[in-house]
């Protein structure tokens, strides 16, 4: 159902939600925007940047969290999964879409991650579509879009003085019971805005046949060429909404077994105790990163493992651009190359 939310009514609504939920929305902190819990007198930061620097996956898979607490004499106990109701407001469709992909990792049939699942179930997600898409984003290229519905309970379209609200799930409907229904004209206007936004985004690279190119060129010098300027800092993966790798370490002094975000761009990620490393240099590590997103995810869930949020492009310290890397991959020969 389409509803109308007046912009000057937004803070009132957010405050009303705060009675029932812990509400997270983009706010400024140290030059960047972050999803932070709303406090009294909050100021939203929607105009500054489209995406928060750290993707909202961090609200479900924190950068660091305890899995076990150690007790005395070599014992241990599970850390209970948190279940307080939460609402994320203003998440962008690329980030929400990414979360549905991570669900396939953390909520797979045989092994469910209880921490992830509890947080997902306790959270309502309200999206804000991108009526002015960002320059680094390429969501329409990879099967997402500036008004994609995946992973959202409701989505807002900015129409100047008002937001048009589309509720997408029961959870979402429950949030907006007080609003008036949108007129046909308003719904039409929103749909025009949505289509214009998607149409304004150029296709960044050809995805058709890209997987096959990457698979067939596993041993190609291409990987050496595209990874040459990489510093191996890992920012592209840390800030990626579909990256989920983590490390598990025992913090003996804190008495905890902790999981921390980890990245395939680090040497120690795949380094084995024997000293052998299947991905000894940035060449193999870059290959793993790109192949995971543009080949392996397709094998696993038949979706590209990238929603085109553009963070890896925006934050790479040496300006490596995944769009350019993939355009180049498309020029590779199709025949199988042997090492």
């Amino acid at each position: 159902m389409n509803l109308i939310l007046k912009k000057d009514h937004l803070n009132h609504l957010l405050n009303a939600w705060r009675q029932e939920y812990e509400v997270y929305a983009p706010q400024s902190l140290q030059n960047f925007t972050h999803f932070l819990p709303l406090q009294d007198g909050f100021e939203l930061a929607f105009d500054k940047a489209h995406n928060t620097r750290i993707p909202p996956k961090a609200l479900f898979l924190p950068t660091s969290e305890a899995l076990l607490k150690f007790t005395r004499f070599g014992g241990y106990e599970e850390v209970p999964s948190e279940t307080a109701p939460r609402l994320i407001f203003g998440i962008r469709p690329c980030d929400a879409h990414a979360m549905t992909m991570l669900d396939t990792v953390f909520e797979q049939e045989r092994y469910t991650d209880p921490l992830w699942k509890a947080r997902r179930e306790a959270t309502v997600v309200v999206g804000l579509g991108c009526h002015e898409p960002c320059q680094t984003g390429f969501c329409t290229t990879v099967g997402s879009g500036p008004f994609n519905h995946a992973g959202l309970d409701a989505i807002l379209t900015d129409l100047g003085e008002i937001f048009l609200v589309e509720t997408l799930t029961e959870k979402g409907e429950h949030l907006f019971t007080q609003l008036e229904t949108a007129s046909e004209d308003q719904s039409m206007h929103a749909s025009e805005v949505q289509q214009a936004a998607a149409a304004s985004m150029p296709i960044a690279f050809e995805t058709e046949g890209l997987k096959q190119k990457l698979d067939q060129n596993f041993a190609s010098p291409y990987w050496e060429e595209v990874s040459r300027s990489c510093l191996g800092c890992g920012v592209c993966t840390f800030l990626c909404p579909t990256c989920f790798c983590f490390d598990i370490v025992d913090e003996a002094q804190r008495g905890e077994r902790v999981r921390n975000w980890d990245t395939c761009m680090f040497r120690t990620y795949s380094l084995e105790a024997s000293g052998h490393n299947p991905r000894p240099s940035r060449v193999e590590r870059t290959r793993q990163r790109l192949s995971h997103k543009y080949s392996y995810w397709l094998d696993q869930i038949n979706q590209i493992g990238c929603t085109g949020c553009g963070r890896c492009v925006r934050y790479c310290p040496v300006g490596l651009d995944i769009r350019a890397m993939l355009r180049k991959a498309h020029q590779l020969p199709s025949e199988v190359l042997h090492a």
């Binding site: 991650d113 989920f244 790798c245 983590f246 999981r259 192949s291 392996y296």
Partner: peptide, 14 residues
Amino acid sequence: KCGVGKCGRCNLGP
């Protein structure tokens, strides 16, 4: 690390 297909590092393709 995880042993249950989540932490990512032991992948061989998909």
